[in-house]
Design a protein around this nucleic acid. Structure first.
Lengths: 198, 198
DNA sequence: ATCGATCGCTACGGTACCGTAGCGATTCGC
DNA sequence: GCGAATCGCTACGGTACCGTAGCGATCGAT
């Protein structure tokens, strides 16, 4: 038999992580059981333990496996960049497989230091992307340097996360645009009026 | 012995609910066990089952037991009312004992219809309070009737919930005021400029 | 004071999951 | 191809929790 494209070890690893993602999305982190992962993945429980020493590690790697880093655009327009940025980020993190895990992940992160670091790192990264977009706008004079960037990121992220996680409503492009436009409108008159030059 | 102020049944009920709140805050809804509630409350497991037929019911009643309805002020100033409204609501729901349960509660609500109704009802009620405040401002002409009230409530609630649940940072009065002021600034110029008459 | 209701306590069988071990079968590196 | 590593499978003892039952003690209403 020829050597397959992916080794057996890799194939096993993928199957296990895939089943883990499905299970966490379905029953949550707390009720995730290795037995069930073994059943769904078709991988023996003993083999799972050979690859992942603990449930904690398994979940962390499963999250990593379905985490994608969205592109940060630089169109020259703050509005366009923010919409693009938040559209990419929210759809990557709060929809699809990762989105289905997110709530349970955040809950478990309150008690698990490892998961806490993971979730916090992802949150911080998303905030950094948005911060970059805002600081570029400041650099080119589109927005006043007096802008409270951190608050603005919260004003932008909050409503979207709240809509998805708490209200469990879809994150439409219309909503993202409406949030961005509303916050930009606030920036326009925010500090002393006419701070946004464009 | 004289008849106590509260009957034994009431005292038992309180002890059980109290221990349940503590435990849910500590280990989450999923890992809540009746055995542990019995240990912490000093109430026998069999007695707990006499009062609460299932863990589901127990959690729901425990949440009800530490839920308070904040007052909705009517100062005549939209800004003051919003700050007062969100200050009361967020501190009632996202801080203290209920706040410690909230994340786990929302996670469990994704899989438990009963908890889902409970969480959704609380969210809807908070939104209704904020909606009332905004509609009163519209009625007295402080804000244009064209205002998208639902979006505005999301713009106000989102950043606060996000700050508390996702970032796990304290909800200071400064933050609440900053969010309210930012959103109000956006409303001012939001639709056609100068919609806020005051 | 009495008597029924309630409670604390203990124990039970049943279930689910843990993490490990042994042993053929399969696969991979050489 | 051949040896070694890996895997699937089964089984194991141990733990935690479930929901129920029995029984003596306590409480509460009359």
């Amino acid at each position: 038999m020829v050597t397959p494209a992916v080794s057996r070890a890799e194939r096993v690893r993928e199957q296990v992580l895939d089943a883990t993602v499905e299970l966490v999305a379905a029953v949550g982190v707390e009720r995730l059981s290795i037995d069930e992962v073994a059943n769904r993945s078709g991988v023996a429980k003993s083999t799972i333990y050979r690859h992942f020493p603990s449930k904690q590690v398994l979940v962390v790697e499963a999250v990593h496996a379905c985490t994608s880093i969205p592109l940060v655009t630089d169109s020259g327009s703050l509005r366009e960049d923010l919409i693009s940025c938040f559209s990419g980020m929210t759809k990557a993190s709060y929809e699809g497989r990762l989105g289905d895990m997110m709530m349970s992940l955040m809950d478990a992160a309150q008690r698990d230091p490892e998961l806490n670091r993971l979730v916090r790192a992802q949150t911080d990264q998303k905030r950094r992307f948005a911060t970059e977009v805002l600081e570029r706008a400041i650099a080119r004079g589109e927005v006043s340097a007096d802008l409270d960037v951190d608050l603005t990121v919260t004003l932008l992220s909050g409503p979207l996360v709240y809509t998805k996680l708490v209200r469990r409503m879809p994150l439409t492009n219309e909503l993202i645009a409406a949030v961005v436009d509303s916050v930009l409108a606030g920036i326009d008159v925010g500090i002393a009026g006419g701070l946004r030059t464009k």
